[in-house]
Simulated assay, not measured.
Amino acid sequence: METITTCPVCNNNKFKPHLDCKDYLVSNQMFSIVYCTQCSFRLTNPRPDATKIGTYYKAEQYVSHNDESSGLVNTAYRMVRKYTLKSKLDLINKLNKGKGCILDVGCGTGTFLETCQKDGWQITGMEPDVDARSIATKKLNISIFPDLDTIQKAKPFDVITLWHVLEHIADLNGVIPQLYKLLTKTGTLLIAVPNSDSYDANYFKQYWAAYDVPRHLHHFTPSTIEALMAKHQFKLVGKRPMIFDAFYIAMLSTKYRTGKTDYLESIRIGLASNASAKQTGNSSSLIYLFNKA
């Protein structure tokens, strides 16, 4: 385990407890989430170090790395994914005004890149997990890079995407400058992360599945991610809600709380969260659009 002593956003060194959460997916261990007393950034602290964190991803249910995960919730996830993949493709086509070069960081098994490839995009993927990388390589018939350091490209990318990836990255202040260098001057960086200030996060508290400790090292809110990215010369140019996340997260959260998924409550909380977000902007998950400042 390693203990973080300095806030990645504002460099403050004082933290206070936020919540203690359980790892329901792999270890059943308890982990603490703290917040910075200066900027309110939330993070899992202490956390597994680089030599140990990989063991917390070894679960059949970890759907982002496994195209065959079973169960009703994961089946529903993949059904919704077909719709969201089209929505993501439509978004990048609109932002780029046509096809271009795209890098998907944390591409998992390559499902999103496959959608882009079929649409005529020049695709590049990065995925640290060896099993997921192997699946993506076979699916896409291209080499998938294990990290950003190994990406060799003469020209920068028009679009870079991180779909629920930034919360997993340990060295935020090391990775974000790399993304800046890999993006064209007029390119767009899309980052999707859970919002720990959302209605459903406040409702489920320590059972909120999107805390997903210890795999989620950081727990963003709209204000803290904007501050972090501004620190690295990125400006926020837009946000998009991920409306289905509220329902999926609620299904997992009810199961974590009682041991059994409550589908009616999940639908009710998902609807309530999305309704609240129309007033507050605090969707369960958000896609943030950044340009170079």
Rank of each mutant, 00 (worst) to 15 (best):
D147N: 15
I144W: 05
I123T: 07
D197Q: 12
P222K: 11
C101F: 14
L236R: 14
D131G: 08
A132S: 11
T137A: 14
P146G: 07
Q117N: 14
D149C: 06
D171M: 05
G125Q: 02
Q117H: 13
L172A: 02
L190F: 03
L190P: 03
G106Y: 00
D171P: 01
T188G: 10
D119C: 08
Q206A: 15
S198G: 06
A227R: 13
H218Q: 06
L95C: 09
K155E: 15
T111F: 10
T150W: 08
T161N: 01
K231H: 09
K205R: 13
T111C: 07
D131L: 12
W121I: 05
E167N: 02
L95R: 13
A192Y: 02
I191Y: 03
T109E: 07
Y211N: 00
L172W: 02
I225T: 08
Y211E: 00
L95T: 10
N141K: 15
I142E: 13
K185M: 12
A210V: 00
N96F: 06
D158Q: 14
K118P: 04
V105G: 01
R215V: 00
T137G: 13
K138P: 07
K231N: 11
I135L: 13
Y211R: 01
K155M: 14
K155D: 15
K138W: 09
A227D: 12
T186C: 14
K94W: 08
S223L: 13
S198E: 06
D147F: 01
H216D: 04
D104I: 01
Y203N: 02
N195D: 14
L148T: 08
E226G: 08
E226M: 10
D197W: 09
G100N: 11
A170W: 06
A154T: 15
D90F: 05
P214K: 01
T124A: 09
W163L: 05
F112R: 03
W208I: 04
F157K: 07
P146N: 07
I102C: 07
L166E: 01
K139D: 09
N195F: 04
L179C: 04
D131K: 10
S223Y: 11
L162M: 14
V193L: 03
S196Y: 10
I123M: 05
N173F: 02
S223M: 12
Q117R: 12
N195L: 04
G110Q: 08
D212C: 00
K235E: 14
L140S: 10
D90K: 15
I151T: 10
G100Y: 11
R215P: 00
I225G: 08
L140Q: 11
I92M: 07
M229V: 04
T184V: 13
I92H: 03
W208T: 03
T188E: 14
Y199N: 02
P214H: 03
Q178I: 04
L182W: 05
A192C: 12
G125E: 02
K231T: 09
D158I: 09
Q122L: 15
Y203M: 01
D158G: 11
K99C: 11
G106W: 00
Y211C: 00
W208P: 06
G187Q: 13
H219Q: 04
L162S: 00
M126F: 00
A201T: 05
C116F: 03
A132P: 03
F234M: 08
A192N: 05
C107K: 00
G98C: 11
I225L: 06
T124L: 08
V130I: 15
F145D: 14
